[in-house]
Amino acid sequence: MNLVETENLKKFFDSKKGTVKAVNDVSINVIKGETLGVVGESGCGKTTLGRTILKLIKPTSGKIYFDGKDITNLDGEDMRSLRKKMNIVFQDPVSALNPQMTVYDHLNRPLVIHNMVDSEEEKLRRMVDILNTMGLKAEHLIRYPHELSGGQKQRVCIARALCLEPDFLVLDEPTSALDVSVQSKILKLLDRAKRKFKVSYMFISHNINLVRAISDRLGVMYLGKLVEIGDSTDIFNEPKHPYTQALFKSVPQPDPDEKVEAPLTGQVPSPVNPPEGCAFAPRCPRSQSVCERDNPDLIEAYGRKIACHRYK
């Protein structure tokens, strides 16, 4: 059962150099209760995808469904009330909190906007409760963001996103600005919240080892396109798309006996005027003439979806 689904979603930006095709024809789905990991290198459009799905930026074309309902053209009051059910946690907790608002204000706003509480007492109880869940204390309510550490700020961001008991949360690199020991705490909290509230996550990250540890399914993006999507364990055990394969080989493992190869040469091409045909073809070790000509569709193969001419 899909909670979130996109159909041929596109998001283009105009820049001085030309049209940036940040998200280029992506059809992706998040199943209820799962964590979908989305990985890719910088410029692959993973962040833009997350924001477009939440309608924080307007899609250029394509459709977005939430809980079976087309929300592509929803706006104004209707969209605002839907925000109770979906939310986002950003990478940089420093910039994600209003420096002029206390933690109390940050938690207060969502609860008030969506009429989540009847009395001031119930509200406080709720706030303190969720802060405790996040490993923070009631005394943090009166703190301003600059009085908190990076990890504490991110916990406030997550508490804010979770206090509405949403169905869907986009986690955009939620731990990459944090130290590893803090990261593991945040991940545990997220995992606990997921089971407690039955939230579905879309976990966007460039840290492949991390995504491996937490996602049920995995989507790999390259230059605005989804190149492979399927069961996380399957893909990690046996990546099929040449980009996925090369990407995984580039990831250093915390094991001194395993050394990375550097199978990908050259740079990621610019998303301004991406190559015709398969975007990965210029760097692909196994590209054929057809790859430079035609753009491969996402097709079913090996129990997953792959966009590569080799698996036709």
Binding site: D179, V180, S181, D191, N209, R212, A213, P254
Partner: peptide, 20 residues
């Protein structure tokens, strides 16, 4: 034990209590 890659799933992650 906090490093993803050493630990295969979230349950295995260990956390160091407290802060720096």
């Amino acid at each position: 034990h906090s490093v993803p890659g050493v630990m295969e799933s979230i349950e295995e992650f260990e956390t160091i209590p407290g802060t720096v």
